[in-house]
Computed example of a mutant assay.
Amino acid sequence: MREAFGATFIGPEGYLNTAAYGLPPKATVDALERVHRGWAAGTVAGPDFDADIAAGRAAFATLAGVPVKSVAMGSSVAALLGPVASALPHGSRVLVPEGEFTSVSFPFAAHDGRGVTVTEVPLERLPELAADHDVVAVSTVQSADGAQVDLAALRAATEGSETLVILDATQQLGWLRLDLAWADVVVSSSYKWLLAPTGIAWASYAERMVERLVPHHANRYAGGAPWQTTYGLPLRLTDDARRFDISPSWFPVVGAATSLAWMATLDLDAVTAHNLDLAGRARAALDLPPLDSAIVSIPIEHAATRLQDAGLRASVRQGAARIAFHLYNDEEDLDRVVDALRA
């Protein structure tokens, strides 16, 4: 076990794969075990999860810096971007960076039959070309290598215009504080740096988006009072972004509420400093270019195999080994990486 930022983690030693999925604090594991025991005993009921949904929504709003009323609950980033893509007029022009995570680009590319075009450009050119497009969709921190989009330049290029800005913060939230409230859409999964189970994601829709979107997945939770909107017409939806809620995955939402509520109490600047210190020292030791990111892409021959042989968990993305340092990693993990790759 390892203690980090006031929480206990069961098995993070050598785990450097948070960019693929994060490890839960023991409190989250305990909460999931309790609800699964209740399921087995037949003692849980749907309303028991309402408090977890509210807690997860509020924690996401805090972490993303957005109003709670703007937050919708979904199952994945792609599912939350689907209604956004469907709301675009025929012939809309969408701009994405080269090599973008496909949960961001595919929902728009799927509308090519309506004349929607998706153009890929180098990440650094996104702000320069934004004003020539109807939509810009980008991960604030790139999944493959940890590179960050210049959000200040993107905001300056689009502010006051009709261009919609869509930000996927999945590789950011939980380790990096960035100002995102100005964007039209902010989406994030919970299972990476937010240390929750898969199956729960969140979106913040700005007011001008709420006015455009159709709640394609309208269900009893979209009414805001799910136990009063279970049967019969007329359609009864909330006035805020909850109208886009899907029916939740009950057990994952317990884990999401526990992990996100805890993370929302942390000094995120301290988490950022911790992560960047380890990642920066790894880059320096491996003679890699400096980059202010907790994600480290390692284009060293056989790097993934050497890490695996040393008992370290990592990924391979775009032909390079990818490691990620989060709050439960320490100098021992750093030393093992350097030893494995400099041997």
Rank of each mutant, 00 (worst) to 15 (best):
P122G: 08
P122E: 10
R125V: 13
P127K: 01
P127S: 04
P127H: 01
L129Y: 03
L129H: 10
A130S: 04
A131R: 14
D132P: 02
D132S: 14
D132I: 04
H133M: 10
D134K: 11
V136H: 01
A137M: 07
A137Q: 06
V138G: 03
V138R: 03
V138T: 11
S139C: 12
S139V: 03
A144G: 05
D145A: 09
D145N: 15
D145F: 05
A147H: 11
Q148M: 13
Q148D: 13
L154Y: 02
L154V: 08
R155N: 11
A156P: 04
A157L: 08
T158S: 07
E159A: 15
G160E: 10
E162G: 11
E162D: 15
T163K: 03
L167E: 00
L167D: 00
D168P: 08
A169H: 01
T170Y: 00
T170C: 07
Q171N: 12
Q172S: 15
W175H: 15
L176N: 13
L176G: 01
L176I: 09
R177I: 10
A181E: 14
W182L: 02
A183C: 01
A183I: 02
A183V: 00
A183Y: 01
D184Q: 08
V185H: 06
V185Y: 04
V187T: 12
S188L: 05
Y191I: 00
K192F: 06
W193N: 14
L195Q: 14
A196Y: 06
A196S: 15
T198I: 10
G199A: 07
I200V: 15
I200H: 00
A201G: 12
S204L: 03
Y205E: 12
A206I: 08
E207T: 12
E207G: 01
E207F: 05
R208H: 08
R208G: 03
M209C: 10
V210Y: 01
R212P: 00
V214Y: 10
V214K: 10
V214C: 07
H216Y: 14
H217N: 14
A218T: 02
A218P: 00
N219A: 02
R220L: 12
R220C: 12
R220D: 12
R220K: 14
G224D: 05
A225M: 10
P226K: 10
P226V: 09
W227E: 12
W227H: 14
Q228N: 12
T229D: 13
T229V: 12
T230H: 11
T230A: 15
